[in-house]
């Protein structure tokens, strides 16, 4: 399977869109070589604006551009885009539903070497809590392309969180992006796993490992807000248990959102997520995911736990 990082997909898609839509402008904060906004800068230098190491100004300038009818894509590392500029996103962009597209790059633990200062474990929680903000977390490079295209073509403030490292493809060129709709990537009648980003592939691997013993459904939830609660409920209908897996704090992300959607349904639910703690440095991404228990084995254990809970509930 092909491996391409999502940030390259982000940059390449913007270049493609920039060729047909003159209103697209791209803003960076001295990280264009990481966000891959540099690809747009090379192709359309007059429409790329580097705001320097000043994320607050970055977002508010994007707000002004949106007020003038531009479609600004403003990117930084997710930890800065969501945290450092939270007030700017809240006060003048989300409150007025301005057409600003925010890219939280190198999200989660994916900037493994740089440590907690550069790792966003709570960006989804922050962005989900903000009224009017739409939140996406694509699963692979192809879905990144599709979502970036959706963002460019649809009005309103939107946040996309993307990964720094190459991710194995789990969707195909033929797939289409349906806004808000969780996508069933593997069907199964026993347990339903909801996941986003890097954890989707781990969930698929867990389902494969368990095939023949437990029939596991895997659902990719790439639109985190608004969450299609009815679709979540119908995807989980008939399951004996639910597992939510995400490379994000267990607080405020998909774990919280699915729990909210499933309230009152009486189906056991377990989480594979980062506990209430900061990130740390590691030599590579996989080592870090293991440290935080974001692994295929962790998903298998969680599946086993909800299955046991279900059986206890029946006896």
């Amino acid at each position: 399977m092909a491996e391409r990082n999502q940030r390259t997909a982000y940059g390449e898609t913007l270049v493609e869109l920039g060729g047909t839509n003159e209103n697209i402008v791209v803003l960076d904060a001295d990280l264009s070589k990481s966000t891959m906004g540099v690809l747009f800068k090379e192709k359309f230098p007059e429409r790329h604006f580097d705001m320097g190491i000043a994320e607050q100004n970055l977002m508010s300038v994007a707000a002004g551009m949106a007020l003038a009818g531009k479609v600004p894509f403003a990117a930084s590392f997710a930890v800065f885009a969501s945290g450092r500029a939270y007030d700017q996103l809240r006060q003048s962009i989300a409150s007025a539903r301005l057409n600003v597209k925010v890219c939280g790059s190198s999200s989660g633990l994916s900037d493994f070497g740089d440590g907690f200062t550069h790792q966003a474990v709570e960006d989804i929680a922050l962005m989900r809590a903000m009224p009017n903000m739409t939140v996406f977390a694509p699963v692979d490079d192809l879905e990144t392309e599709r979502i970036v295209r959706y963002m460019a073509e649809n009005e309103g403030p939107m946040y996309i969180r993307i990964n720094r490292n190459p991710l194995q493809r789990v969707t195909s060129e033929r797939d289409v992006f349906e806004f808000g709709k969780p996508a069933v990537l593997r069907d199964g009648k026993d347990i339903t796993v909801f996941a986003h980003g890097v954890m989707v592939k781990k969930a698929l691997d867990a389902a494969e490992d368990l095939s023949g013993t437990v029939d596991v459904k895997v659902v990719n939830v790439s639109t985190l807000k608004p969450l299609a609660e009815d679709e979540i409920v119908s995807a989980a209908a008939g399951s004996r248990g639910i597992v939510v897996a995400e490379e994000h704090s267990v607080i405020g992300g998909l774990c919280a959102a699915v729990s909210q959607a499933m309230r009152g349904h009486g189906i056991p639910i377990e989480f594979v997520a980062i506990q209430d703690m900061f990130g740390t440095s590691a030599q590579n991404y996989e080592e870090l995911l293991e440290e935080y228990n974001l692994t295929t084995d962790a998903v298998i254990n969680a599946i086993s736990n909800v299955k046991k809970q279900h059986e206890r509930g029946r006896s």
């Binding site: 300038v61 002004g64 551009m65 003048s92």
Partner: peptide, 18 residues
């Protein structure tokens, strides 16, 4: 939308650039 202070000049700059 202004009121959280310090943001208007950046917004104005975005308008000016656009």
């Amino acid at each position: 939308n202004t009121g959280s202070l310090g943001q208007g000049l950046s917004i104005s700059l975005g308008l000016a650039l656009a």
